[in-house]
Simulated scan of single mutants.
Amino acid sequence: MRLAVTAALLGALPSLATADGMASSETVEACVTAQVEAGAPVADCVNEAQAACLEYPADAALAATACFLDAKEAWGSYIAARMETVRQSAPAEISAVAEIEVRYDLLQNLMQCDRMQELVLLRQEPSDATQLQKARCEATATGLAFVKMLLQSREFQ
């Protein structure tokens, strides 16, 4: 039974994102659970959750950028909600550690986006495409911080 549920969730990976953009935090959490059980990369859940942002045509970079900025905001709200769950169900010390861990995971991920942006700007002028790259990187970085937080806080649901 558990294998059938995992297979069903894995088969649904390409459709995690809703028509209006991001997948819900519950959908992402179900994806992460399925990926862990299948021994598959959980980062795929981040990519699939914001897949709708990749569907914009090349000449719609500003719309795609806005989509990724919205995704980044959604990931941030998922982190805040999960942190609240941890605060309510974990001992104070563990909650404090979780806050520190997620903050520094996010900062480290976003710093890599800044580094990549600076390297790109050495070779080319800022453009809609470079803004899109940065927005995509930041959304993905924030999503990865959320997924890591989910994995580390599974016992505090």
Rank of each mutant, 00 (worst) to 15 (best):
E48H: 05
L121M: 07
M83Y: 03
M116K: 10
A139N: 01
L151M: 14
V147Q: 00
T85H: 06
L3S: 11
E101S: 13
A90Q: 12
D70H: 08
V36Y: 03
D20E: 15
T33E: 05
L119A: 04
I94H: 06
M116H: 06
L3Q: 12
T65Q: 12
D59N: 15
A96Q: 10
Q88H: 10
R87I: 10
K72C: 05
L107M: 09
Q88R: 14
V28L: 08
V97I: 15
Q152H: 14
E155P: 04
A43T: 14
C67G: 04
Y104G: 13
V46H: 02
Q157I: 08
D70Y: 06
R136E: 04
V120E: 04
P57S: 13
C45G: 07
D20H: 09
G143V: 00
A66F: 01
Q131F: 07
K134Q: 07
S127A: 11
W75Q: 02
A129Q: 12
C137K: 01
A30G: 08
L10K: 06
R154S: 09
T142K: 05
A139F: 02
S77M: 13
V120I: 08
A74K: 02
T33D: 08
T33M: 01
F146P: 00
Q117L: 12
Q50K: 15
P91R: 13
A60Y: 02
V46R: 01
D70Q: 15
A80M: 13
M22A: 09
A43N: 11
V46F: 03
